[in-house]
Design a protein around this nucleic acid. Structure first.
Lengths: 339, 339
DNA sequence: TTTGGCACTCGCCCTGTTCGAGTGCCAGCG
DNA sequence: CGCTGGCACTCGAACAGGGCGAGTGCCAAA
């Protein structure tokens, strides 16, 4: 168990290192923080902290820098979540209130978050399966070609074209549309496949029946597969702020960010509720081993429909970042609820 | 007027510099290219080329590197467009053929282009105004809330929600929908505003008339404003290949790439037909002054509906890049025509 | 347990030096 | 007149050495 003062020393080290980006020594520490003890004492504490793996020195006769484990302890026990300043809150409102549709909301959110945290922002679109259906529209583009448009309560609009095995009459189409809507509107998208399972059988003509079933299957399947999880990223220019050795780090990070799969997995690993902070090597992905990811779910109601967060250097201002991420998530939730 | 041999020397310099990323000297030149003359002669030629502003030396007693003007001469008169290899062509086909919708086409194109050229790829969505309308759908989400879905022949699907001044009956809606479609389907989107101008007057009830006109106005306007020009970028990780001094360059470039406005302007400045190469300072934008942009229009028919291209260091393989860009653009055009 | 003192370590930075690629100029040659 | 070989020169890159100083670990005393 670490004494109170040693924790205080760790906190001071983290804060100073985050501020200056340079290894921090015992003397500088006692000068900048009123720890009430001498540098020598701090040195002893540092020796212990190093032995425990919370800090390390880049080379002998240099100051100490926190390790991943040190940051972990810091966010778990030493740091709170710093609430935003009033101007910052106002900025969020001003910036987000002008959004006209979901794409716009997500786009603005990503820019806002990047600006606020000065890091890379990642915002996931509301998950299809967790949204409820507001409307389903069926259009016939050509005799044997249908388009399904799906609209959710979170504002997502997804569409897909499917070629039918046989032409499909206008009346049958209207019929199908009506039945489809009466069944699924107001339901969660996740339940839709079940809800429409027996739909084909309710059609009398055999060939219509076949068409309906194949079409429905394809549509639902591909909608989910292709569009279930989308996301937007922004603020990559902030990667250049990673620190003195950013040229080495930026490459793998950019590559990871380009792989939506990687990012989705990253967000997927985060807790369903509450804020998640993954530090350095805690991130499974190789290229992100010197970054931290702060993420949180957001949603229109109590339940989260998607996640958003930021990716930054492990040496980041955790309280501030967490504050910004949380505040933005909350307000985005409100926006979605209103629309 | 530059002699034939001097042009040959310039070509050799460009090729070597692109290959090695290092200033090239007279001796190395004569060794790697059979120019048939001695280093001393090459030196004289170089002196002339330098005087004319086609090449420069980073510092005294270093080799020469091409200037923007030198590259310009190179692409204009010395370099052709290198056709792709058969495997490369096959890769394009394989990669692009699996696309299921427009988003997918654009996404795949961007990845493909980035991979092929090992540079940053930019692909513009087909312009709304240059596409023709395939279908217009009007949905009533709530009594006084409409959604318009617009589908173009290039596969774009755009939607927008509008709050109406007054509730709008289901019959009126169907009526409007029918009239709307009969007027605009098959027409170019650019003409739509004119075509629907007198639509409100054809409604008998006064309040319907008001609703229709305001709604139409809002819809068309905002659709064009917000969605007219979208684009997707990819391959930003390739920025790390910019050269030895990439840490300095990457920042402004990333910032420029994040501003869609900048990119759209960039593509907008390119010629409507044929390939455009903008080298270094020829690009208006400050941050892109050490990059070159190779862009070309693509479209389903003879006419271009949008542009695509790559952004790379001025020191790039122009013939290869131009070949890749052109090939991809052609094939994307085909894909769009088929769908 | 804390503290002041002290010797020690080791990376950073400045300087001087060497090395060599590349240049410009010139005289001679075809 | 243009090309060539020779030659002196320049100047940055790379390396080595040395002083500096921040920071450490250890120890003896309070």
């Amino acid at each position: 168990m670490l004494s109170e003062r040693r924790l205080e020393v760790l906190r001071a080290i983290v804060q100073d290192y985050v501020g200056t980006e340079e290894p921090v020594g015992s003397k500088a520490l006692t000068e900048r923080h009123k720890l009430g003890v001498s540098p020598a004492t701090v040195r002893n504490d540092m020796a212990v902290l190093e032995e425990e793996g919370f800090i390390a020195q880049p080379h002998t006769s240099a100051g100490r820098i926190p390790t991943d484990k040190g940051y972990r302890l810091f966010v778990d026990r030493l740091a709170g979540v710093k609430p935003l300043s009033t101007p910052e809150r106002r900025a969020i409102h001003n910036f987000l209130d002008g959004a006209v549709d979901l794409d716009d909301v997500v786009g603005r959110t990503v820019r806002l978050l990047a600006q606020l945290t000065r890091q890379v922002a990642v915002v996931q679109y509301p998950s299809l399966t967790r949204s409820t259906v507001r409307h389903v529209e069926l259009l016939s583009l050509a005799p044997a070609r249908l388009m399904l448009v799906l609209i959710t309560d979170t504002g997502r609009v997804e569409q897909r074209v499917v070629d039918c095995p046989a032409p499909f009459g206008e009346t049958s189409l209207a019929d199908l549309r009506a039945r489809l809507n009466s069944r699924v509107v107001g339901r969660r998208f996740a339940d839709v496949p079940q809800l429409v399972q027996d739909l084909p059988e309710s059609f009398e003509e055999l060939e219509d029946r076949a068409t309906v079933s194949t079409v429905l299957a394809t549509l639902l399947e591909s909608l989910v597969e292709e569009h279930e999880e989308r996301l937007m990223i922004g603020g990559t220019a902030n990667l250049t702020r990673f620190g003195p050795d950013f040229p080495l780090m930026i490459r793998p990070v950019l590559e990871a960010l380009e792989e939506q799969v990687v990012l989705l997995k990253l967000l997927g690993e985060a807790k369903e509720s509450g804020m998640t902070v993954r530090i350095g090597h805690e991130n499974a992905h190789e290229g992100l081993s010197s970054t931290s990811v702060v993420s949180v779910g957001y949603g229109s109601g109590g339940e989260a429909v998607a996640k958003l967060g930021v990716v930054g250097p492990t040496r980041m201002d955790y309280p501030g970042t967490m504050g910004a991420v949380r505040a933005v998530a909350r307000y985005v939730g409100q926006i979605l609820a209103e629309s």
